[in-house]
Amino acid sequence: MFAYIVRRMFQSVIVLLVVGLVAFSMFRFVGDPIDNMLGQERTQADIDRLRTELGLDQPFVVQYAKFLQGAVQGNFGVSYRQGRPVSTILIERAPATLELAFVSGFLAITLGIALGVFTAIRRQGIAANVIMTVSLIGVSLPTFLIGILLIYIFSVELDLLPSFGRGETVMIGSWSTGFLTASGLKALILPAITLGLYQMTLIMRLVRSEMLEVLRADYVRFARARGLSERVINFRHALKNTLVPVITITGLQLGSIIAFAIITETVFQWPGVGLLFINAIQFVDIPVMAAYLMLISVMFVTINLIVDLLYYAIDPRLRVDARAT
């Protein structure tokens, strides 16, 4: 168990180092930071001074080490566009994205698994087939179109819900939350559905196909031959086996929620890190891009670690192998 976790953590650290290298290379080679930071009126002396100040005259490895050191301490430099430290901007923006991601992730997982199991068990039924067809439309509809559609119906035509922004927020420490006000909650509804719907359809289709596969397995046939009830077979034997692969992919899906948040945030002008990132790309604001990359890779790596641990808890085969090693 311990060795297993340590090995996993070790791999995570390597992933982070690689991502750090990518982020740092962006810093170093995409566009010239000097160009970005000094205006047109510059002298060679200014350039040289800034070069030394930024450490750009030092060897690559030293610069990378310094970058990592800064990154660990949350120091990603100054945004080219806003002229403020990137870390401050990120801290301001992160709560909006996290709250949105949390709500839609929760919706996607619970509804996705429930509907997936339903459509797998009742695969001949009318309701299940309707759900499957609708879900295919869901997969084919780009997230931004879903968002626009929802805005058109609920904001423009029905005028029920706000079409952009977070509504009123309340500060708890440095965390601004929209959960505590009515307008904040109202503003959350459409973006959360937009972001969750696509993930939900994916999870649902995945659960269904995994479950159908498990239902064909020999041990399910044997369970049937022993006269166990369909309920026990479906919800005890099949579901648990289905969860093993589903957990991995759901973990990946959760990661992509944070990425897809970029789209949702753009459509709804939601003031989160996704919107920040897309603006950074348009203006080639490298420090913000690099910081965003590091931030979400930390999140992904954490999610993956949790997934691995869950996996480990569910599948006894892993436990024994781990003990043997």
Partner: peptide
């Protein structure tokens, strides 16, 4: 009752 050919796959691995 029934006994299948392959004992490897006829038992549920998670129980």
């Amino acid at each position: 009752s029934m006994i299948f050919q392959d004992p490897l796959t006829s038992l549920n691995p998670l129980f």
